[in-house]
Design a binder for these strands. Structure first.
Length: 682
DNA sequence: CTGACCACGA
């Protein structure tokens, strides 16, 4: 018969064996001991708690629960161990349900585990109840509980409650600060995060690496490069810039502050780069429109044998969208399909965007219907995609399908809807959506919506109303709205109003190149040569230069870039021959070169040649030479297509029987059989 | 704790 001391010794040994078995994940060894414990004469709560811990650590939380249930009595440790078992297997609801078995007593550990479970399942109600219980039990001041409660309120998006708790936190705790920071940042409440940052700056010595990540996130959202640089300097002191989390946050911060090169530098120093760091630096390039560099990084990453995930694919596909690189996008789509990332929402949305931006709304639609899940962004992509392609009727139909499908439209949705209304000239419907539906849905109209309404009135020829609308809706300082009106003055050849509007814009934004171009086009269309000359003179005097026009086309796996009058392409001779042939053909069916769009002071014969070498015509000729008969030709251009090219390409579509899609800086021109989807309003 | 997809016009 063992003495009491011997029993204690035996228990000690048993606990040691259980802990070792748990650490080694040796289930059978623990089970063997469990069998012996069951047969023991006396119940031992400590031993049974260790059994719970053992099974929980071996991922057998169900068995742990059975042990728990079979215990004749339990203590708070029993409950806490089982709850952490549930937590590590993601069974937060089961963890909370355990609170109904309160016979094991509640202490600060159990309560903070309960609050953490509420955080995971984002249950504000349960979280509040736990908080109330903690207050009644006098446990609310305990550091564990307090931080857990604070974190719960932040994650459940109740920052006002979090602030109340935070104000009661005595003394500094980086955990509390980090929770508050992330809570404000996630909600986009930058005024809140500013307050926290200010409080934190005074206590830099207490920051942990999570604090650095949070504050860098704040700098990124605020585009605060000055503070970001200071934080970066601080990380040097502690060698934290080499930490993969801090480093990735630095990369992200520089990227969002428009510093692609600094982002690359922060990335380069990282000794260990993971998929997030790679994706962050790719994103930095993509944000700054350095799409080729972003795609190169995708290849580099593959070389380093880091596996891309759905975010990486989304960013890479987004880069293809920026380049309208349909073939590369297609290739990525195939890779994503093969690796199983295709099913992710972000990848599907990115692909839809890419196809839409590359001029293939049909493919965007195909992705849309194949996606296992879609969200409001997917719907917005289809709606705005249709609108950009001049398919406003389809855009409106899709919007109504969206409502029938029970999806709630967003701020962006209404931008698409209103621009579709504008295209169709649906003035009353436009006002209906703006004044009634947006309010019903709970979306407050912003300047983008008002700008759409200006476009809507303009399109209907109601230019004076459009002008009043701008003034009455307080968007009179918005250059975009005025430019929309000016563009319409050009279409309607209303140079009196156009002149006034241009003056207005140039007061708001001196030397706005878009305004000069519109103004000059307006005079040209109205055959007001004196006006054209005056604008040209003004531009010269003020040193305003037009950005060079560049067009590009993808043939095979290569992208061919053409600048206006740039005759260095190796196949220039062939292209010239083709162009001359085309011009002759379309002249036969009524083409007359439009000298008015030429902004240079040159002779008429030179003007004709100048027009012929516009970048989009070069790209088109090249495309016609190198693609099979009947294939659709897709051309991208950095600026807006010019009037002369628009007419010429429409005629070329007739003589060649080709469908030609031109993506200019604003919209698509889907040209087929001499008709353009833009309806010649642009 | 780090990374992502959609917008008015030019």
């Amino acid at each position: 018969m063992a003495s009491p001391g011997g029993a204690a010794l035996q228990r000690h040994a048993a606990v040691a064996v259980l802990r070792a078995a748990a650490a080694a994940g040796d289930l059978s060894k623990g089970k063997a001991l469990h069998a012996r414990i069951i047969t023991a004469a006396n119940f031992d709560v400590v031993l049974h708690n260790n059994l719970i811990s053992f099974y929980a650590k071996c991922g057998q939380v169900g068995v742990a629960r059975k042990v728990f249930d079979a215990m004749p009595f339990r203590n708070a440790v029993s409950g806490n161990l089982l709850m952490s078992g549930y937590a590590s297997s993601g069974r937060h609801k089961d963890s909370l349900a355990l609170l109904r078995v309160v016979d094991f007593g509640l202490n600060e550990y159990v309560l903070s585990a309960a609050v953490a479970a509420c955080t995971h399942i984002r249950s504000y109600d349960m979280g509040r109840q736990c908080h109330a219980y903690a207050v009644k039990a006098g446990l609310a001041e305990q550091a564990y509980v307090c931080n857990a409660v604070l974190h719960m309120y932040c994650q459940c998006a109740h920052m006002e409650d979090a602030v109340k708790v935070f104000q009661n936190v005595s003394g500094f705790d980086e955990f509390a600060f980090n929770s508050m920071m992330n809570g404000f940042l996630d909600r986009g409440q930058l005024d809140g995060s500013v307050r926290i940052v200010k409080a934190m700056v005074g206590e830099v010595e207490k920051w942990d690496h999570v604090s650095y990540v949070a504050v860098l996130g704040h700098c990124a959202s605020m585009k605060d490069l000055v503070l970001g640089g200071q934080v970066h300097a601080q990380t040097f002191k502690r060698r934290l810039e080499l930490n993969v989390f801090v480093g990735s946050a630095l990369v992200d911060m520089y990227g969002k502050c428009d510093r692609a090169h600094d982002a690359q530098c922060a990335f380069d120093v990282l000794p260990e780069k993971n998929v997030v760091s790679w994706t962050a630096v790719m994103t930095a390039y993509t944000r700054n429109e350095l799409y080729e560099d972003a795609l190169q990084l995708f290849l580099d990453m593959e070389m380093e044998e880091v596996k891309p995930n759905e975010f990486t694919y989304a960013v890479a596909v987004h880069s293809c969208a920026g380049l309208a690189a349909l073939r590369n996008g297609n290739a990525l789509s195939a890779c994503a399909l093969k690796t199983g990332h295709w099913v992710h929402l972000v990848v599907g949305n990115a692909l839809m965007n890419m196809y839409s931006k590359s001029g293939s709304i049909e493919d965007a639609w195909r992705v849309f219907v194949s996606m296992p899940l879609c969200d409001v962004v997917s719907w917005n992509l289809i709606i705005t995609g249709y609108a950009h392609h001049g398919l406003a009727r389809e855009a409106m139909e899709t919007f109504h399908s969206m409502l029938s499908a029970g999806e709630v439209p967003s701020y962006v949705t209404f931008i698409g809807v209103l621009s579709a209304c504008a295209q169709l000239g649906l003035v009353d419907e436009g006002f209906y959506y703006l004044n009634i539906m947006m309010k019903e849905v709970g979306v407050t109209p912003g300047k983008e919506h008002y700008t759409c309404m200006v476009g809507l009135l303009c399109r209907a020829g109601r230019l004076d109303e459009a002008e009043r609308f701008i003034v009455n809706n307080c968007i009179g300082t918005d250059v975009v709205a005025w430019r929309s009106l000016l563009s319409s003055c050009q279409v309607y050849r209303n140079y009196g109003l156009g002149h006034r509007v241009a003056e207005q814009i140039l007061q708001l934004k001196p030397n706005d190149i878009g305004t000069y171009v519109l103004l000059s086009n307006m005079y040209a269309k109205a055959n007001r040569w004196d006006g054209v000359v005056k604008v040209r003179k003004q531009m010269r005097e003020r040193g305003v230069r037009k950005e060079p026009g560049v067009s590009w086309i993808q043939v095979g796996s290569d992208v061919h870039v053409f600048a206006s009058e740039d005759k260095v392409h190796p196949q220039m001779d062939q292209i010239t021959v083709k162009l001359e042939e085309l011009i002759d053909q379309i002249k036969a069916i009524g083409y007359v070169p439009n000298f008015a769009v030429v902004l240079h002071d040159i002779e008429d014969e030179q003007k004709e040649e100048h027009l012929m070498y516009h970048s989009e015509k070069l790209a088109l000729a090249f495309g016609l030479i190198h693609t099979p008969k009947g294939a659709t030709i897709r051309i991208m251009k950095n600026l807006r297509i010019c009037d002369d090219c628009h007419v010429a390409i429409k005629l070329i579509s007739v003589v060649t029987g080709r469908k030609i899609v031109v993506r200019d800086a604003v919209r698509f021109h889907c040209i087929d059989g001499g008709v353009c989807s833009c309806d010649d309003y642009w």
